[in-house]
Design a protein around this nucleic acid. Structure first.
Length: 547
RNA sequence: GCCCUCGUAGCUCAGGGGAAGAGCACUUCUCUCCUAAAGAAGGUGUCGCAGGUUCGAAUCCUGCCGGGGGCACCA
């Protein structure tokens, strides 16, 4: 029996109590079933009786008792207990609960996927770092979480496109080019330029492709350097993300908005909507009409469009490309953008409540050191990954909500112990794989010996109930854009598995015959392996077969 | 000053109205048989403070206190 089936059974028991006149309430469409936080509260619990107490005009415990009387008679349910203020604590019988093992094994990678977010057409934009330097620790959190959100939305039936906005236009690119050229010529970094050591590598790359460039006049050299260094830097960023398991469906160049006239067209479209005015020689968007704290300049007095104008054009591009929801994942240092981005959506005729969502993530510290690219004091993502490993970096970022302040301890993350939850979860997976491999050597196969009533140990009830919770966790993670729910779930599942492993042996002892108990337990082992693997995949973390 | 965010066990943190949780740290156990990277046992709380909404608030609302971040015709 799955949690969904149980919820249906509870609703049916409730209807039955209404039919017999014990209760007088409208039966809700869905009943929520959850895993109790505490041991001893059954496999599943529901608070439906407390929610219905008021409309039913009865004390919650009486409502619960009425439901329990009918629910007890439902096949597959071993015990129903009224507890506390009016909870129903439900225990499934082993045969009914155990069926889930087969269901999961047969569903394979699709177990946990669903259609809860079907119908959403989502553009998910994250990182969008300037291509003027390598990705660093400040980009890392949204790289991991954004990619996992993409996976969660996809698994839940949404039509999701992940997108990286390349800020390849404007003054920063000029400074970038000037910095690389200066390095090529052995000159000091220009005022406001980029001092990082990576500029050396870019200069070397440019020199290799165009040995003559350093000797060209400034006006000729800069565009060449700009183009070559930009390509090299963007390739570096793509490669770094690839190594980190992060996938983008679209790489969107800001420069194409300027070159293709999209920025001017966007200003014109917003003007048609009546939100644009001219003042002091500049062109303004009246964002204050939609909650922004001040109006924003689109075209500066000197005729140059602002970054904000490009943002507006970019938003319209997303809208024109058919995305119903535009999600922006931004660092806390960009939180001032919320008002103006929402105002863009409103000025474009969209509903800021539904068509745009902005998530703000706190920046990550490493060993207490805060890092800034501009200061030239970089811990690059590439270095972080090679130091700690992609799995540990991703997982340690993904197990906390994006808005929680976070300080990573690099040395802790390198540890392969219980301090480090990624290894705990991965080890559980490796254990399942090892058990399966050795069972196969022993001649145990799942075959047709599946007898779920044999899964009657308390650790098996816990493990099965935890496995049954996975689809709900995935759906909730997708709905709330909170991958950490998956990570926390996997830790719970790993614990349940380890406890089971310690109690219930899958393989026969040396002199033992192979029985249906071994075969049935192998189903449960393999079901657990499947769910651990499916969950780790949602996090972009590998599921090793040996450790 | 205004805005956002965080405040839960000694530490790091989960907890979307319902029964206060996990890991770490500390103590003690458990491998002649699946990987002990594991498991078992031991106690810990004015959920920052004060009001409010509710049958019920760590959770929702308001104010205050404290940490972090942000308030450009920069990108």
């Amino acid at each position: 029996m799955t949690p969904e089936e149980l919820a249906t059974a509870i609703a049916a028991a409730l209807s039955a109590a209404v039919d017999t006149g014990e209760l007088s309430v409208d039966v809700p469409e869905t009943v929520r079933v959850e895993r109790p936080k505490q041991k001893g509260h059954g496999d599943w619990s529901t608070n439906v009786a407390m929610q219905l107490a008021k409309p039913a005009g009865k004390p919650p415990r009486d409502v619960a008792a009425a439901i329990a009387a009918h629910l007890t008679q439902t096949s597959g349910i071993a015990a129903v207990e009224v507890a506390g203020p009016g909870f129903l604590n439900i225990t499934l019988d082993a045969a009914s609960a155990g069926e889930l093992a087969r269901t999961i094994v047969e569903a394979g990678v699709s177990y946990g996927q669903g259609q809860s977010e079907a119908g959403r057409t989502v553009n998910l934009e994250f990182i969008s770092a300037n291509p003027t330097g390598p990705l660093h620790i400040g980009h890392t959190r949204w790289a991991a979480l954004g990619d996992s959100m993409r996976r969660l939305l996809d698994a839940s039936g949404a039509d999701v496109t992940s997108e990286y906005y390349i800020n390849d236009a404007g003054a920063q690119m000029d400074k970038f080019a000037a910095s690389v050229l200066a390095r090529l010529r052995g000159e000091p970094t220009p005022e406001g330029g980029y001092p990082g050591a990576y500029i050396d590598d870019l200069a070397a790359s440019v020199r290799e492709q165009r040995p003559d460039v350093a000797d060209l006049p400034e006006g000729q050299a800069l565009p060449v350097v700009r183009d070559l260094a930009y390509r090299a830097q963007l390739d570096d960023i793509r490669g770094t993300l690839e190594d980190f398991g992060v996938h983008f469906d679209v790489w969107f160049s800001e420069a194409t908005l300027h070159d293709g006239g999209a920025v001017e067209q966007a200003v014109a479209r917003l003007r048609e909507q009546g939100h644009v005015y001219d003042d002091g020689g500049a062109v303004w968007l009246r964002t204050t009409d939609f909650g922004d704290d001040k109006d924003r300049v689109l075209i500066r007095a000197d005729g140059v469009p602002t970054y904000f104008a490009a943002d507006a054009a970019y938003y319209l591009s997303k809208k024109d490309r058919g995305f119903d929801e535009k999600i922006y994942l931004l660092g806390a240092d960009h939180h001032g953008y919320i008002g103006r981005l929402k105002a863009i959506a409103a000025c474009a005729g969209d509903d800021p409540e539904h068509h745009i969502e902005i998530k703000i993530g706190q920046l990550v510290n490493l060993d207490g050191a805060k890092l800034s690219k501009r200061a030239g004091n970089i811990i690059e993502l590439r270095d972080l990954v090679s130091w700690i490993g992609a799995d540990a970096v991703r997982y340690s970022l993904e197990r906390y909500p994006a808005d929680s302040p976070l300080t990573l301890d690099g040395e802790e993350l390198r540890k392969q112990t219980n301090d480090n939850p990624v290894f705990y979860v991965q080890y559980a997976h490796a254990r399942t794989a090892n058990v399966a491999r050795l069972a196969a050597e022993d001649g145990v196969d799942r075959g047709d010996g599946f007898t779920p009533s044999l899964l009657n140990d308390p650790t098996e009830a816990t493990l099965l109930a935890t496995l049954g919770d996975f689809p709900r966790v995935v759906a909730q993670g997708a709905e709330l854009l909170e991958p950490h729910r998956v990570a926390r779930y996997l830790e719970t599942l790993a614990t349940a598995y380890h406890k089971w492993y310690d109690t219930c042996r899958v393989r026969p002892l040396r002199d033992e015959e192979i029985t249906d108990t071994h075969r049935t337990r192998l189903w449960l082992n393999d079901a657990t392996r499947q769910v651990l693997a499916n969950g780790l995949t949602l996090l972009g973390v590998s599921a090793p077969h040996r450790m």
